[in-house]
């Protein structure tokens, strides 16, 4: 019987990747805070812009994560 080998490749995330994910997270927190607070301030246009920005950044991060995970 031929030996079956399974090769596992472990990629260590480089330091700059951690940094970029941290920046992404901070940006999300910033946008979320401003979106919620703009709603409390009764500024509808600002609220909408911040929520849309939040959604875009969130989805962008999700896409990047998905693509990198499948490389």
């Amino acid at each position: 019987m031929a030996e079956e080998k399974i090769v596992l490749e472990i990629k260590r995330r480089p330091w700059y990747a951690w940094l970029l994910w941290a920046v992404w997270f901070v940006l999300l927190v910033f946008l979320a805070q401003n979106a919620l607070a703009s709603g409390a301030e009764i500024e509808p246009r600002a609220t909408m812009i911040f929520w849309v920005s939040f959604a875009v950044v969130l989805v962008a991060g999700g896409v990047v994560w998905f693509v990198r995970n499948n490389e």
Partner: peptide, 8 residues
């Protein structure tokens, strides 16, 4: 002339 809730 702004309120002070939003960090921005």
């Amino acid at each position: 002339a702004k309120k002070d809730k939003a960090w921005v």
